[in-house]
């Protein structure tokens, strides 16, 4: 099974095999325009993709954070300064003013 991601409206990009993702951890993907996406798979097999750039440091590292859940929301904690980002909405759970982009994902 392949994992696909939509970097711009409507288009789909094949990224990797599903099993390249360890449940609970992420991987980064390079998008055609030079942006980077962080892909995650949770325990139940659900997929997420958000921008890989940590807005607090500028480093492309969100894919290397730990994922978790609180109050029913699944999040990733940045490996640098530990701010958490909701994987479905991109909203930073520790700072209302910050959001990262979210990309649609699917399997095919």
């Amino acid at each position: 099974m392949k994992l696909e991601l939509s970097p711009v409206d409507g288009s789909w990009l094949t990224v990797c095999d599903m099993d390249a993702l360890t449940p609970g951890r992420g991987m980064a993907a390079l998008l055609p325009d030079g942006r980077q996406a962080a892909l995650f798979r949770d325990r139940s097999g659900k997929l997420y993709a958000i921008d890989n750039r940590d807005p607090f440091t500028g480093a492309q590292v969100l894919s290397r954070g730990l994922i978790g859940s609180a109050d029913g929301r699944t999040f990733v904690a940045s490996p640098l300064l530990k701010q958490r980002f909701d994987l479905e909405t991109g909203r930073c759970l520790d700072d209302d003013e910050v959001t990262v982009a979210v990309y649609p994902v699917r399997t095919a």
Partner: peptide
């Protein structure tokens, strides 16, 4: 109770 079946978190996992 509420955390069972969930993803855990960045504190307890390590």
């Amino acid at each position: 109770e509420a955390a069972r079946g969930g993803e855990g978190c960045e504190i307890c996992k390590p």
